[in-house]
Amino acid sequence: MSAAVAPPITRVNPATVRAATDEPLGVKILLVTVSVLFLGLFLVVPLAAVFGEGLRKGLGAYWASVTDPAALAAIKLTLITAGIAVPLNLVFGVAAAWAIAKFNFRGKSVLITLIDLPFAVSPVISGLIYVLLFGMQGWLGPWLQSHGIQIIFAVPGIVLATIFVTFPFVARELIPLMQAQGTDEEYAALTLGASGWQTFWRVTLPNIKWGVLYGVILCNARAMGEFGAVSVVSGHIRGKTNTVPLHVEILYNEYNFVAAFAVASLLTLLALVTLVVKTIVEHRLQLELKESTQTPSGEA
């Protein structure tokens, strides 16, 4: 280096010197500002809109909309639907993760892809396939009708469509977690004389409890909020086959905006609670995963 190109000796001004892997301060401020504005516009404004519109005519109107008999019936149906879909998918998720994570068999990766499949199917099509199967013109429709069983435009159809769209949630959380944890602890339990069930309840389940909870939370949020699939199979019979999201749609289409947003705000609160619990559980889940990957995994 020649002295000619060297800058004159100056004293260090800490504001002008930065670490090699830092962006200039201006770029940083710009990036943070753009990100915050973008998220504010796309996430915070809609949130505010729901509550703002719902409370437009005051708390009285809000309360009346939420406690309207049709609204209460919708809430009841949504709770029933989630109450059936979530436990079923939980049992499935645990069983699938046990088989996939603890054993080796051919076709495992195909099975994992198939379990994820419902995520790739659009909500409307998820409803449509059940109409094609159980509807009046569907494969099983005539048989079902002759036996007096109604699935489409009735509660069973809503439950089935909800199970379909929430199918992968628990399984896809548990499979990687249990794969990372391996089989060493289960083998240890067996050598100590535990039975299969004891091993599962006392060794496996405590190791995956945060993963289970995480999957259940996401599954529940989607089950209570599903719109497209349920809309196709429900028939929109007020007080009978309306879930909360469908009730919101009906109120909105009737230009009863305050009521629509009031009921929608309940779902929004559910979403916010889900986010808070999810953030907390996520932290515990990461610890669970980290602990398990510190020890080498077994043969699974």
Partner: peptide
């Protein structure tokens, strides 16, 4: 808070996002 909020579109029922965006 912002980090947690990024998941809002996952958690918020689509019908609610739909009417909220329309209101805006």
């Amino acid at each position: 808070v912002i980090d947690a909020l990024v998941d809002l579109p996952f958690a918020l029922p689509t019908a609610v996002s739909g009417i909220a965006l329309t209101a805006i």
